[in-house]
């Protein structure tokens, strides 16, 4: 198959228009899911069974079922209930955009909660004791000691999760959203040239994920100054 450069360039430009939507879905659902994940992580480490059990169940369900099922339940499934169709929420739940966002946020919350929990549990007990000995407690202790250490610990795991989320936004194309994959599928049905278009789309996703990985590598470097060698630290 001869490679047709003008066609390649043309479909590349068309696919670029999908980037804003892909990024929007990723960023908003990661932020919303992150907030939910913090709540879940605190429930998990609360040592109270009536907080721990629901969080455990939530995480089990959302990690144990495919994201596609979750998207379909929210987008197609909820319309089965007349109560919901007549409620104030319907203008939102009718839109594929908000349904995809909701499903992605719920999904990432389950995975992120475990990452955050791991980070929180990795804070050495000695640090917390030392802080208590200095008279810190409650929120101050959390803000100054626990959170900075936990955040740093969970950065690598969280970067994986965000890369997975970038890839997961492709599923939004199955409920009519025209992000990168959606545009790609549309272009194929018009031109019948799958290989070129998918190579372009794949390259765009790779570039986004490469940038995300670099960003997190930089972030990890920036928040761990004491692990660097002295000469690097001065720079």
């Amino acid at each position: 198959m001869p490679f047709d450069l003008p066609f390649l360039a043309e479909s590349f430009v068309a696919l670029l228009r999908g980037i804003p939507l892909t990024l929007q879905l990723t960023v908003l659902s990661v932020v919303a899911g992150g907030i939910l994940a913090f709540g879940l992580a605190f429930m998990r480490i609360s040592r109270r069974w009536w907080l721990d059990a629901p969080a455990r169940f939530y995480i089990l369900v959302f990690r144990g079922t495919p994201l596609l099922v979750q998207i379909y339940i929210i987008y197609y499934g909820l319309s089965q209930f007349p109560v919901l169709r007549n409620s104030v929420l319907w203008p939102f739940l009718r839109e594929a955009y908000w349904c995809a966002m909701l499903a992605l946020a719920f999904n990432t919350a389950a995975y992120s909660a475990e990452i955050i929990r791991g980070g929180l549990l990795s804070v050495p007990a000695g640090h917390v004791e030392a802080a208590r000995a200095c008279g810190m407690s409650g929120f101050l202790l959390f803000r100054r000691i626990v959170m900075p250490l936990a955040l740093r610990q969970m950065l690598p795991g969280y970067s994986n999760e965000i890369i997975l989320m970038v890839k997961s936004t492709a599923l939004a194309s199955t409920i009519t959203l025209l992000e990168i994959t959606g545009i790609a599928a549309k272009l194929i049905s018009e031109s019948y040239r799958p290989v070129e278009i998918f190579v372009c789309a794949g390259a765009i996703y790779l570039a986004i994920n490469f940038l995300v990985a670099r960003l997190f590598a930089w972030l990890e470097y920036a928040v761990s100054p004491e692990t660097r060698k002295p000469e690097e630290r001065r720079a």
């Binding site: 599923l171 194309s173 199955t174 994959t181 040239r193 998918f198 789309a201 996703y205």
Partner: peptide, 18 residues
């Protein structure tokens, strides 16, 4: 590991179909 699985499935299906 960097591109969505859905894209790979589409590529395999449409590619081999064509």
């Amino acid at each position: 590991r960097g591109i969505p699985d859905l894209l790979v499935i589409y590529l395999f299906y449409f590619g081999s179909s064509s």
